[in-house]
Nucleic acid binder design. Structure first.
Length: 819
DNA sequence: CGAAAGGCTCTTTTT
DNA sequence: GAGCCTTTCG
């Protein structure tokens, strides 16, 4: 049978084992998607299972639509009856349909991260908690984790062990009440409330049992407790539960994904059958060996040996850049070169990084070099202000209970309803226990004399009345207009169009974004008008980063390592591979977190089919400061024979061997000392000849290897430990870039001629400079100190230079002299 | 009331 | 460097 042709034995078993619980442990590139789709097709064609009796859950909408596409090719139009979607989207659908059983309004809105923060903030205000002392974020994280573990406010409150948690439980309780008033659910509610619905209403669950005979869950290693509960509930009767995943690719524990779901799956299903897919069809042997080297130090894993029949392939390129600017430039030029000389196309490249902020430098370079790129995530389209404004209007029209949206748009564009007025209205809403919008209606209707509760001045009252009237008219319009007409009318009536089109270029751009939103809305125009707006808004809320990525579109993909999960590219460049970036600084002192960083790097490496570049910079501007980071500690785990090293040609003056000791002597890496040691981390390594060697980790004296033979691939000895990496100086055509003078850069210009040795000072507890001191700096000349403060053990001196303006200088670097 | 400017803090990853 | 908040001025 065609469906089974070309499957390897493990795949075959996974496709044809249909009854009972099945766990498929699928290594990267092992044909997982093929297995899932063929399994579904097999169920339909061979077993005669009706498509509408199969539910498949994916991690992103993009994965869902790709699965749909492939299934359509396999089984034809009947595939339209399958239920394929993310957990969140599937739950949203269930709740809209059956949530009324537990008192849910079917037109609930879905609150995203921003909305949640707004809501927490208003709770904090109401509880009179100072936002400085009690920032909103941590509360939201606590609430989110609690919900992911199916703990409501009550359960959460029972286990508080600190004062803060007690406060959090009060915030949580009130937050949940306000969601209800707003007729809103947040992301986590979609899951938690679904579990609750199934628990409270067995007849509802039974209906789903009647319908769904087969359940498939992809990326199971990244499910949380709530999601797992849903799987168990839905699969309780049929027990035909097939979960697919790879513990080595579990990278969402911070989002409460619980790796135990997959590691301990068999405890819940003793009759579980497990199939391991170990043959890799994606990558070269070189890439796979590097990946294996990176992942194997992890303790918390199930051993799995990937293998491939693919050839050795090209060596991995390891590139050291001077800074992020040069890093990006290297990436751009390298891509240009491969496209020109080796016949690759732009869409075959992906550049991956740990944090979204890193995309900026890349974008700059790509724009300069005229390379098309596709940016995933970052400032997402749906998070742009104008887009969110318009969506907030639509949400308010759909659901007047939505106070977050009401508050957002009540004065956009400005219509004379300021903070003072809103405080008044909020008070009223609280007193009466009604939504914000309802409170506005009440505030307008009631006379200030009589049994007055509000004291809205007549002018303000008119403004509020006009807003209320406008919204109510649009609500009435909704009944008769399609979504596009409604949108157009809204943009006119609210004055939003005129507000954006203020003649500036930025306004024009924002307007175009709104029009882009209109294009998206067009897809929903044909739906039944009752549910069209719901569906549209839901689609907006549950949109994921990668969903907008079009594979066939020309351009280099710029993407975070997280978002890259599940994707593959012929050429992958991973940038920013420095300690503190990848692994991220917030993970380095937590072994479990470090393992996850390792898995993340592993995910990145295994996205590559043919070519892989690993890039790091010796210095990087982060959050406005220059940082000096070590190359990523993960490099030590990549066998050196797989790697070609390239640097920027002639090394900068005094390039220390120590930079590479990171490769040779990983376990000896100096651990971060207790307390803050920002200055040590950042500076000393660069100046070993003067710094007395603190932290430079070895052979002082900055000698560059004179001539090393190029490192050629040699057969890898898998478990015998990595061979120390040696740098192979290769002269690039690129001339070394003179460092740009930057206020925080030491000496502000090693490279443009001899620089006076920076005086390294031990940071002290108190600022040594005070306002008014006259100082001299070799590059900036004379100046006067404006202020000085201690930042993480280092002194940050703000100096007004006579010639060069005001600069902030880190005293540990800056050769600042008192006059 | 509203816009603009200044100052503060924080800075991972996302359905 | 950005976003958020507060302050200030019109």
């Amino acid at each position: 049978m065609q469906l089974l042709d070309g499957l390897n034995p493990a795949q075959l078993e996974a496709v044809t084992t249909l009854a009972g619980p099945l766990l498929i442990l699928a290594g990267p590139g092992s044909g997982k998607t093929r297995v899932i789709t063929h399994r579904i097709a097999y169920l339909i064609q061979q077993e005669g299972v009706l498509p509408h009796r199969i539910m498949a859950v994916t991690f992103t909408n993009k994965a869902a639509s790709e699965m749909r596409l492939r299934l359509e090719r396999l089984v034809g139009p009947r595939s339209g009856d399958l239920t394929v979607g993310t957990f969140h989207a599937t739950c949203a659908r269930i709740l809209r349909r059956d949530g009324h059983q537990i008192g849910l309004d079917p037109s609930f809105v879905i609150y995203d991260d921003d909305d949640q923060i707004s809501l927490v903030k208003s709770v904090l205000k109401e509880l009179e908690l100072d936002e400085k002392r009690y920032p909103a974020r941590p509360f939201l994280s606590a609430i989110s984790s609690a919900k992911s573990e199916l703990k409501g406010p009550v359960e959460y409150g029972e286990f508080t062990t600190s004062y803060w948690q007690e406060v959090a439980s009060r915030v949580y309780r009130r937050y949940q009440e306000m969601l209800k008033t707003n007729r809103a659910l947040d992301f986590d509610d979609l899951l938690m409330i679904t579990v609750q619905l199934f628990k409270d209403c067995p007849d509802v669950l039974a209906r789903y049992h009647d319908r769904y005979q087969h359940l498939l869950v992809d990326e199971f290693q990244d499910t949380n407790i709530a999601q797992y509960a849903i799987v168990k509930q839905l699969g309780a009767r049929s027990r035909n539960v097939c979960v697919v995943g790879d513990p080595d690719q579990s990278i969402y524990s911070w989002r409460s994904a619980d790796i135990r779901n997959i590691l301990n799956f068999e405890e819940d299903y003793p009759d579980l059958k497990t199939v391991v897919l170990e043959q890799n069809y994606r990558s070269t042997t070189t890439i796979l060996e590097a990946a294996q080297g990176v992942i194997s130090p992890n303790v918390m894993r199930k051993e799995k040996k990937l293998w491939t029949q693919n050839g050795q392939g090209d060596p991995i390129t390891l590139f050291e850049a001077y800074d992020e600017g040069e890093e990006s430039k290297f990436v751009a030029r390298e891509i240009e070169r491969l496209v020109a000389r080796e016949g690759f196309s732009l869409k075959e490249f992906a550049v991956m990084y740990r944090t979204n902020a890193q995309s900026r430098a890349l974008e700059d370079a790509f724009l300069r070099y005229g390379l098309r790129y596709k940016l995933v995530g970052g400032t997402r389209f749906y998070e742009r202000r104008e887009v969110k404004d318009v969506i907030a209007f639509l949400r308010l029209i759909q659901n007047q209970g939505d106070g977050v949206s009401a508050a957002r748009v009540v004065n956009v564009p400005t219509r004379g309803i300021g903070a003072r007025t809103m405080a008044e209205i909020e008070k009223l809403a609280r007193q009466r226990g009604v939504s914000l919008f309802r409170a506005m209606e009440i505030g307008v209707a009631e006379q200030p004399d009589g049994n007055a509760t509000t004291t809205l001045a007549p002018r303000v009252r008119n403004a509020v009345a006009a807003f209320v009237e406008m919204v109510n008219q649009l609500v009435a319009d909704k009944a008769t207009l399609g979504i596009l007409n409604l949108l157009d009318r809204l943009l006119e009536k609210t004055g939003y169009r005129a507000f954006l089109l203020d003649g500036t270029e930025e306004g024009q751009e924002r307007w175009e974004n709104v029009m882009e939103l209109r294009t998206v809305a067009r897809d929903y125009e044909t739906l039944n008008p009752q549910s069209a707006l719901d569906a549209f808004l839901e689609g907006m809320a549950l949109m994921s980063d990668v969903d907008g990525l079009k594979d066939e579109e020309e351009g280099v993909t710029l993407i975070t390592l997280h978002a890259a999960k599940g994707l593959e590219y012929p050429c992958v460049m991973i940038v920013g591979l420095e300690d503190g970036i990848c692994p991220h600084s917030r993970s380095v002192d937590d072994p479990a977190a470090l393992e996850e960083e390792r898995r993340l790097f592993y995910v990145g490496i295994t996205r590559a089919m043919k070519r892989l570049w690993l890039v790091y910079a010796t210095r990087r501007t982060l959050y406005g400061n220059v940082n000096f980071n070590q190359p990523s500690r993960f490099f030590t785990d990549i066998p050196a024979n797989l790697v070609d090293f390239r640097g920027t040609g002639a090394p900068p003056v005094g390039k220390p061997d120590a930079l590479f000791s990171a490769f040779a002597a990983a376990p000896k890496r100096p651990e971060p000392q207790l307390g803050y040691s920002g200055s040590q981390r950042s500076g000393l390594l660069r100046f070993p000849s003067r710094g007395g060697g603190a932290g430079s980790g070895g052979s002082g004296g900055g000698s560059w290897p004179k001539s090393q033979p190029p490192v050629r691939p040699t057969p890898m000895s898998p478990r015998s430990g990595p061979v120390p990496l040696r740098p192979t100086p290769i002269t690039l055509r690129t001339p070394p870039i003179p460092p740009r003078p930057s206020p925080m850069v030491p000496g502000s210009g090693m490279g443009d001629g001899p620089t006076p040795p920076p005086e390294l000072r031990e940071p002290v507890g108190d600022p040594s400079f005070k306002a008014g001191d006259r100082v001299y700096h070799p590059a900036f000349g004379n100046g006067v100190v404006v202020s000085s403060r201690m930042v993480r053990g280092d002194e940050e001196v703000t100096v007004a230079f006579d010639q060069r303006g005001v600069k902030k200088l880190a005293l540990s670097f800056a050769p600042l002299q008192r006059q």
